[in-house]
Design a protein around this nucleic acid. Structure first.
Lengths: 140, 140
DNA sequence: ACTTGACCTCAAGTTGGCTTGAAGTCGTAT
DNA sequence: ATACGACTTCAAGCCAACTTGAGGTCAAGT
């Protein structure tokens, strides 16, 4: 199984060298060995990078993403956490859908002022219900 | 129409005073007047804040969000931009869906190593197709 | 008249996720 | 043997989006 150096990884994953080094620095990925000074990667890192990119697009932090992998690079998430994360994603999808609906409303509704259009307001209120964020939000 | 002060806005929107002041500083919202030193807001700011919160959840930057409002606080987006943004959101939804599918796969697939499971890899490759990001990504 | 507490300003600090720059190291092709 | 170019390190810088802290103001209640 031939190894790839950082330039090839960049070319095939779209992730910049500086980013790859940064990911390594924070422990998210690792290069398997060096050829001289040069990092050498196993091809399977590409799969991992796809996953990282995807999870980032899903709004997960690098720390959260790192927590999805076990020692030897295997994806290892306890079932309960998977359910939680999946729910979280569903939540995000709902928000995005709401946002898209709002945009479509703006495109289509003939009301002079959207901000006062009742159906517009209803859409927004609906999206609020998911984040009551009362007095002391658990800022974690 | 009675005015609200910052504490009430916080209570009803879940947006902290420091954040509200920051939003004002960057021109995203404005308080209509002062009572002594205290900012007074029109109740309709709450609708605007809902929209801001929603758009933020959709991954839009404050600058982009600011661009969606006209001078007098009305939502004013050229149709073409609405289409673009809606497409962008659809894109994000697809990514999130892919991510959720990956998670479900991990929960269900009996393969010893997901990273090598062909159907797992297929899902990831599919998500890659959307961001080829060749040599010089147009960093805008 | 005084106290209280919710607000205020302004500058500086924080976090996450990178990027940039200067200076150095190597393997490969000539 | 030398030059080239792709890599390397390390520290510092950058951006967005806030948050924090010190010190100040003010209206309303007693």
């Amino acid at each position: 199984m031939k190894l790839l150096d950082i330039g090839e990884i960049t070319e095939r994953s779209g992730v910049k060298p500086s980013t790859l080094r940064y990911y390594e620095e924070v422990g998210l990925i690792q290069s398997i060995t060096r050829h001289g000074l040069r990092r050498q990667y196993e091809p399977q890192i590409l799969t991992k990078l796809s996953l990282i990119t995807l999870a980032k697009a899903g709004g997960f932090s690098l720390t959260e993403i790192a927590g999805m992998f076990s020692e030897k690079g295997q994806l290892q998430i306890p079932r309960e956490q998977i359910r939680e994360r999946a729910d979280l994603i569903d939540e995000q999808i709902k928000e995005l859908t709401a946002l898209r609906n709002v945009l479509h409303h703006v495109a289509d509704c003939p009301a002079p002022s959207h901000m006062e259009c009742p159906s517009f307001q209803r859409m927004l209120k609906a999206s609020d219900r998911r984040k009551p964020a009362k007095k002391k939000p658990p800022t974690k």
